[in-house]
């Protein structure tokens, strides 16, 4: 019995230590966000003069001014714009990238290897390099100042990141599933919608999630995320 108690105590100690360690790491990671949230309630002058977590004075003024937006356009408008962009971009990417990935992975067509290489190359070129040509192109289309340069390419599977991601996921699905479905009389389209899509849900969720994040935080964070109009970084 004493032995059992000792073991139990050991387990408790071990779990406590593990949790303390994890919580400490978690606090470390959350700290900048926490700091940002708390700073948003501080008066402007106190953000850097009083950088601690507990504010000496609390104000809602930052939110009030922020909501008024810029030149008569309130924050709600910004928010709606972003939301609209995100929803359309997610729909576009989900439709076009899955189809492109399915074609690359399962179908046979001429020049498949070459086109796959071309797609990968768009990932390797730093986005800033194509910034000016892209602007000129969209300017010729008369699209500058509209939603189109951001939204139209999403329906054309231009986000090679997601195409490659989905190719990798679809490749890990057993081919036997497709073959069985074909034998049961499924057409190519049905194989795609009934076999591939339901089995690739985790990848689809990932695609939707990243599209949302990267459209919402539109200035590109890395090379993979070059929307058609990248704000020049730095």
């Amino acid at each position: 019995m004493a032995q059992g108690n000792k073991m139990k105590t050991n387990t408790v100690i071990r779990h406590t230590l593990t949790h303390l360690f994890i919580i400490a790491l978690g606090v470390l990671m959350v700290y900048p966000i926490l700091w940002m949230i708390i700073s948003s309630f501080k008066p402007n002058t106190m953000i850097f003069s009083d950088p601690g977590l507990i504010p000496k004075a609390v104000t809602l003024e930052n939110y009030v001014t922020g909501w008024q937006g810029y030149a008569g356009t309130i924050f709600g408008r910004f928010f709606l714009n972003s939301l609209f962009m995100c929803v359309v971009a997610i729909i576009g990417n989900l439709i076009s990238c899955t189809m492109a990935a399915y074609a690359f992975e399962r179908l046979k067509f001429m020049g498949k290897g070459v086109w796959f290489a071309v797609m990968m190359i768009t990932l390797m070129l730093p986005g800033h390099v194509t910034l000016v040509p892209r602007y000129i192109m969209f300017n010729t289309f008369g699209w500058v100042g509209t939603y189109l340069p951001i939204l139209v390419p999403k329906f054309l599977a231009t986000d090679a990141f997601f195409v490659f991601l989905l190719v990798q996921f679809i490749r890990s699905l057993p081919k036997e599933l497709d073959e069985a479905a074909t034998i049961d009389g499924c057409s190519q389209v049905e194989v795609f919608t009934r076999i591939i899509l339901p089995n690739a849900v985790p990848a689809l969720v990932t695609t939707a999630l990243f599209t949302f994040l990267w459209t919402w935080l539109s200035p590109p964070k890395n090379g993979c995320n070059c929307g058609p109009i990248c704000a020049p970084t730095g």
Partner: peptide, 17 residues
């Protein structure tokens, strides 16, 4: 893992910010 390897490699080469 292959996907992440390739993407991270490309991303690291392009490290800028």
């Amino acid at each position: 893992i292959l996907f992440n390897l390739v993407m991270q490699m490309i991303g690291t080469f392009q490290a800028f910010t």
